[in-house]
């Protein structure tokens, strides 16, 4: 059974112990620098000097490299091919593929963009893997994010797998009534209503009951909420965030200045 939808891997590491906001800022810094710093090899270098070392520092290198090789790299590779073929820049044709020209410029362009996307997805993956969603949300709530907002985020993450499980039960129930879900597309399209109907009706009822349940536990209380977990935010984290913000500003400023 799916227990929950979370990428978090529990480890005790330097990265895990950073304040969630620091990690969020770090992630954004990596992404923004990869996209704005006006030097061609920036994203490539970031992978070597930031992404990989961070995954080692966070003791998640093995899990991260599996994800990177299986999911992120193929996606970036696909993007690379698309852009290399369809980006009409430059005139220095390296080779032809039917009617498509591949130029050196388009290759370079595609390579950088693919690496930028690789950095973006990798940075987010590292963030999700090393940050517990409820820690992130309670930290953000403490900093003034509305409680309702963080509730919606977390409960969606948690309830999605339950909805998947429920839809599997509905499919099983309708197949038991002779509904053929394995045959032609045409038949399957017709079988959508028996599957979607119960899911929608059921979800509406559930939403009402869940609203009552959390209301009964003071969800809309006007009191200032407290938090079970204390999320440390030492001065090191605060300093680090300022440094990172400075790097972002520097990168964007250079980008604007040189363009």
């Amino acid at each position: 059974m799916h227990e929950r939808l979370s990428f978090h891997i529990k480890r005790d590491s330097f990265i895990h112990n950073l304040n969630p906001l620091t990690k969020l800022v770090l992630t954004l810094t990596l992404i923004l620098i990869a996209f704005t710093f006006p030097w061609y090899w920036t994203p490539h270098l970031l992978v070597l000097v930031a992404i990989i070392p961070l995954s080692l520092l966070g003791k998640v290198f093995r899990e991260f490299s599996v994800t990177a090789l299986r999911l992120i790299l193929p996606a970036a590779g696909f993007l690379f091919l698309m852009q290399a073929f369809f980006q009409p820049v430059g005139s220095d044709v390296i080779f032809k593929f039917y009617f498509l020209d591949v130029t050196q410029e388009s290759l370079m362009f595609a390579f950088r963009n693919a690496m930028r996307v690789f950095v973006m997805v990798s940075a987010f993956t590292l963030f999700l893997v090393t940050t517990h969603p409820s820690e992130l949300m309670s930290d953000l709530t403490r900093r003034g994010l509305p409680g309702q907002f963080s509730y919606v985020i977390i409960s969606t993450l948690q309830i999605l797998p339950q909805i998947i499980a429920k839809s599997q039960t509905i499919i099983a129930a309708q197949r038991s009534r002779g509904l053929d879900t394995e045959s032609s597309f045409f038949k399957r399209a017709g079988s959508l209503i028996p599957l979607v109907g119960p899911l929608v009706f059921g979800s509406l009822m559930e939403v009402e009951e869940r609203a009552i349940a959390i209301e009964a536990r003071g969800f809309t209380s006007k009191q200032t909420k407290t938090s079970l977990h204390e999320i440390p935010d030492p001065s090191f984290d605060q300093m680090l965030r300022w440094v990172l913000v400075a790097l972002i500003i520097l990168s964007i400023a250079l980008n604007l200045w040189l363009s």
Binding site: R4, S6, G147, Y151, R210, I214, R217
Partner: peptide, 18 residues
């Protein structure tokens, strides 16, 4: 609640709210 990952946190949810 759907907002919590462990039973302990789940039970604490109402107390956090108030």
């Amino acid at each position: 609640s759907g907002a919590k990952y462990t039973v302990f946190e789940e039970i604490a949810f109402g107390l956090e709210n108030i």
